[in-house]
């Protein structure tokens, strides 16, 4: 399992807000950083991987931990 470098908490937010939060944070972290997005909106499961594909970032997968569903993204460029 991936150990994230940082976590953004988007619980309670509706899509597209979790995707926007990830998109805002990504350029601020160094390339290679793994950001975990906590998001309980079911649309995030579709939209975070789709955003990674559209933006050429790496989607590492989802985990369902004690904080609910989470999505790991690595900044690749």
């Amino acid at each position: 399992m991936t150990v994230p470098d940082e976590v953004i908490d988007c619980r309670g937010q509706r899509c597209p807000l979790p995707v926007i939060a990830a998109a805002r944070r990504m350029p601020e972290v160094p390339v290679g950083t793994v950001v975990r997005v906590l998001a309980d909106d079911p649309a995030a499961a579709v939209d975070i991987p789709a955003w990674c594909r559209m933006r050429g970032q790496e989607f590492l997968g989802s985990v369902n931990g004690p904080d609910g569903p989470a999505y790991d993204v690595r900044r690749t460029h």
């Binding site: 899509c15 995707v19 649309a43 579709v46 939209d47 789709a50 955003w51």
Partner: peptide, 15 residues
């Protein structure tokens, strides 16, 4: 409040 199961099955942006 769930995204379309069709968009989900295709793995395309739903919002």
């Amino acid at each position: 409040l769930r995204p379309s199961h069709v968009l989900e099955a295709m793995g395309v942006l739903s919002h």
